[in-house]
């Protein structure tokens, strides 16, 4: 294995393009190193992108924030502005792993690992976040929801990597929330998860809603019917039941050591309801 720590994006892109064998990007390393240890991947080249300019910064942009690909989970939690604007996005990132993992893990890495259960992804999808991808052919922006295409698979092409993730501006009365279910209180992979992003009008009516579910399908799933169930309501019980039903209907999970199909399908609806209530309260709605 070769290790490289390029100082420019161009150099990084070139290294990745020129390597004929398996390559891996090293940001936080909390997935890549585990996979290497288990022998699941034996890269010929690891490119450590932490030396690239701006890659560890969170920058205000157009009313939203651009989050560098190497910003660790703990650093997101320490950013007051981002936390105020997109609390659900931050809590998703902060739920990845332990305190120790928080010191290293990144949203971009979580996204590129392409696990259906990735904790930081549902809230990014609900937020309509956009990834900035750098590759041999230059720079392109891709919706976060379009990055993972299946368990462990992304739409990134040979030589491409994510340099940053952009979360947009928000109206005043808007917020989001993310919840996952795990058997313990920490240290587990989500058995199912839900992110809800809401915008309210002056009287607490939901004007826009996006709901994304994790660990219930091969990729994180944006459930448009679930969002639609909330629009035009003040989050009354009927709306929440409709949300829950839409979420459960959108589930296509698997049975595995972490949960059954039945359990995941049920829990997704429960979590969506609970997350919606939190997001609603955060947005200033009176439940």
């Amino acid at each position: 294995m070769q290790y490289a720590k390029p100082k420019t994006v161009a150099e990084a892109a070139r290294l990745l393009k020129d390597e004929a064998g398996v390559t891996r990007i090293l940001a936080g390393g909390t997935d890549v190193l585990v996979q290497m240890k288990a022998g699941m991947v034996e890269p010929a080249l690891v490119v450590d992108i932490k030396g690239l300019p701006g890659i560890r910064e969170i920058v205000a942009e157009a009313g939203g924030y651009r989050i560098g690909a190497c910003v660790a989970g703990a650093e997101l939690g320490e950013h007051a502005g981002l936390k105020a604007l997109w609390p659900g996005v931050v809590e998703g990132a902060e739920l990845i792993g332990s305190t120790q993992v928080q010191g290293r893990c990144t949203q971009a890495g979580n996204l590129c690992n392409a696990s259906p259960a990735a904790d930081s992804v549902p809230a990014l999808v609900a937020a309509g976040a956009v990834a900035r991808v750098i590759g041999p052919d230059g720079v392109r922006d891709v919706a976060v929801s379009d990055v993972p295409v299946g368990p462990g698979k992304t739409s990134l092409k040979k030589g491409e990597f994510i340099a940053s993730i952009f979360v947009p501006a928000r109206p005043d009365r808007a917020s989001d929330a993310y919840l996952r279910f795990i058997p313990r209180t920490e240290m587990d992979i989500a058995v199912a998860s839900a992110a809800v992003s809401l915008e309210l009008d002056g009287v607490g009516m939901v004007t826009a809603a996006r709901v994304a579910l994790g660990a219930v399908a091969p990729t994180v799933r944006l459930v448009e019917a679930a969002g639609a169930a909330l629009v035009g309501t003040r989050l009354d019980e009927a709306a929440l039941d409709a949300l829950s039903a839409a979420c459960s209907a959108a589930c296509a999970p698997i049975d595995d050591k972490r949960g059954t199909i039945e359990f995941r399908t049920h829990i997704a609806g429960v979590l969506a309801k609970r997350a919606a209530r939190i997001a609603y309260t955060r947005a200033g709605g009176q439940a």
Binding site: G29, S98, Q100, V101
Partner: peptide, 21 residues
Amino acid sequence: GDCGACSVLVDGRLVCSCLVL
């Protein structure tokens, strides 16, 4: 990275040293 026994600080940040090269 599941047990924390190898915890160290790198530049003041708590990490598992098994998950750092």
